[in-house]
Nucleic acid binder design. Structure first.
Lengths: 238, 238
DNA sequence: CGAGGGTTTGAAGTGCATCAAATAGTGTGG
DNA sequence: CCACACTATTTGATGCACTTCAAACCCTCG
């Protein structure tokens, strides 16, 4: 049963057929409705996941219910696999935020394989290093960027220029969730986005944002960042 | 030339003699004065470091000179080794903040070894996972803890109880640097520490802080954290 | 003793959060 | 296709936490 092309995932590059077979044989594909909690923080972990469609929110929360968003993942992303280094506990909760098709695999297969498969170990090291860069940047941004700059930086990471250099961005999920992802309140997000418009001349139409080029936005947001623009788009397994 | 017992480092556990020999043969030991910049962010990386004595500050900075502290490391810690996953560039600058004895080793030896040494790769994966937990926690704390709670959490990580359960903590470096490490201004640190004293009954005498037990501090700081106290002391390679 | 850095304190400003309410947008059933 | 219910978003008013600027204090070390 081939549910998904595992070889296209960076961390499985160069792995051999038997491993893929073992994974595929134990794969479960399932549709999950919005709001479904896939895994719980500190729960005993036995499977990891790949998102075939939809969106998933990773978060933790305190006893009083305050949430801290770890990340929001689109289709094509993998999550939960790092539990094998975390004492077999998930390091976050995962909630479906848009009806999603999720494939899951046993962590045990991964755990066994990594004991002997050096290529896989090196791939995972690269993935972890990539994630680490993301986290380092995140901490830095929350320290030295203001709300508008963080939004600008978020937009820059979404931006794909067309031939003319113009950019048309559609926010991938709710503004409320973007706000939480960036560590701010929805009200702050709304106001900071207006401020960003005033500062950089971007055009806002609901969830769509346009600009003629990235110069203004880059000048505004990247001023408060230690990385040179373009900061590599740090997409990777979480 | 055996400059340091490499086997005591978690990431080298189980590695073989020839590797240690290769490292030792190429090791440099050097004393560095306070203020010395050991490595520069995004500089081409060719060596990694172990701190035999003294303290080292890891940081990045923006064009206008604003610094973001990545970490402050005591003796026994290793740094710079992750450059092998970062395109051979250091992901931060490193400055000596207290006259330090530093041993350095060629990254090339590590890089070669990791290509074939599976144990080493697995050890590094564990180290990266540990660091990752630290970073995740750091982001969460900066999102949901206030200044006093972050200080309390910092103190808890330094705390070692004696037989009676009482705790006597000596700040390991300048309050100004602790403040920067926690992402706040020195003035804020000073005021927030007073507030923490009022809230928890800790006793402050200069750089020394005492308390009869950890209960009050835990109750105050860990309320705004998704981890259960005691959060494992996440010390590890950076 | 005196210079210099670290630390504290005070006063004022800024940015973000919070609370409250209005508005816009979306999906539902009739 | 409209009215309703519900959610997302925006706007306004206010408060609090942290920053900033300035000055005093304190400690240490030559």
């Amino acid at each position: 049963m081939k549910t998904i092309d595992l070889e296209t995932f960076g961390i499985f590059r160069g792995c051999a057929g038997p491993f893929f077979d073992a994974l595929s044989d134990a794969a479960h594909v399932q549709m999950h409705p919005k709001g479904k909690l896939l895994v719980l923080h500190e729960d005993s972990a036995d499977r990891f996941f790949i998102i075939k469609g939809g969106w998933v929110k990773l978060f933790r929360e305190t006893l009083d219910g305050t949430q801290s968003i770890v990340d929001v993942l689109p289709k094509g992303q993998m999550f939960g696999e790092t539990a094998i280094f975390e004492n077999d506990q998930y390091p976050y909760s995962a909630e479906i935020i848009e009806a999603a098709e999720i494939v899951s695999f046993p962590l045990s297969v991964l755990k066994n394989e990594i004991e002997s498969n050096h290529t896989l170990a090196l791939n995972m090291l690269s993935a972890m290093a990539l994630y680490r860069r993301q986290q380092d940047r995140e901490i830095e941004h929350r320290t030295i960027q203001n709300a508008s700059q963080r939004i600008g930086c978020f937009l820059l990471r979404l931006a794909r220029q067309d031939e003319s250099g113009a950019v048309n961005i559609h926010l991938p999920y709710d503004k409320t969730l973007v706000a939480a992802r960036l560590g701010m309140q929805p009200e702050t997000f709304s106001r900071a986005l207006v401020k960003l418009k005033d500062k950089t001349g971007i055009r806002i139409k609901g969830a769509t944002i346009e600009m003629d080029n990235l110069d203004q936005l880059t000048r505004y947001s990247c001023a408060a960042c230690s990385s040179e623009f373009p900061c590599k788009d740090l997409q990777g397994a979480v």
